[in-house]
Design a protein around this nucleic acid. Sequence first.
DNA 1: TCGTATAATCGTGTATTGACGATAAGCACT
DNA 2: AGTGCTTATCGTCAATACACGATTATACGA
Lengths: 121, 121
Amino acid sequence: MVTDGCAGGPHAVYIETLDTTDLETCKKILARLAKGLSHPARIEIIRMLCNKPPDQEFICSDIVRALPLAQASVSQHLKILRETGWIYGEIDGPRVVCRLVENIMAFYQQLMRKVTHEQHT
Amino acid sequence: MVTDGCAGGPHAVYIETLDTTDLETCKKILARLAKGLSHPARIEIIRMLCNKPPDQEFICSDIVRALPLAQASVSQHLKILRETGWIYGEIDGPRVVCRLVENIMAFYQQLMRKVTHEQHT
DNA sequence: TCGTATAATCGTGTATTGACGATAAGCACT
DNA sequence: AGTGCTTATCGTCAATACACGATTATACGA
């Protein structure tokens, strides 16, 4: 099984790259993550991944099957979730295993706190 | 000063009306709230309102002044924040005082938890 | 009642979103 | 090489988002 090519996990690289001391950056990242969440179908996908038992894996076709949408539409939603930083795909032969970016929920909530609570810098 | 006409506060009415036992409803509401957050300008508005000292009030023109956008654009963002359930306006003569829906942050985070954690119903 | 301040709306142009069917591309297995 | 499964992309269409200047509506004060 091959990952994105992000040593240390795609999650860590993605999140640790960000300059979360800059408020403008935080607002942009938070806005982007929020856009990822801004559709019920995408929330359902996140929900599936959050609630998945540790031993189970979801590939794209599982998600297509679970949603009342055409394959192309689901693929688009997955793309948006990738672009907005929620998930990444592990390529496994002809399949793509969909994984939540590690700690992304915690990161999102932390960003919300950072942005909405007064910064004493 | 005149409110929306929502007895008990516009907040309580809005939030308590929702059927948060229905997962589909939760997903829709959460998606709507996330859409509200999905633009840096709107995040900045929410941030201003969250961080506002208790004795201060923000009217629309304050927000226009604080953002690098035209009045019409800010008005549109405020409208979206109203439609997505984040804020409401208290009309005060020719002014409109912008207020966060009470407990909306907590409600948002609660919805996130509800949607992303397994439901044992 | 006339003028001023405030905020919403209108009209416009461009960009993005969301949905779909159809097609292409990648891999595995004969 | 050919077949089948899986996923991404293309092309299209309608709807929505975003930004703006201009205009309108409302309320207050002189």
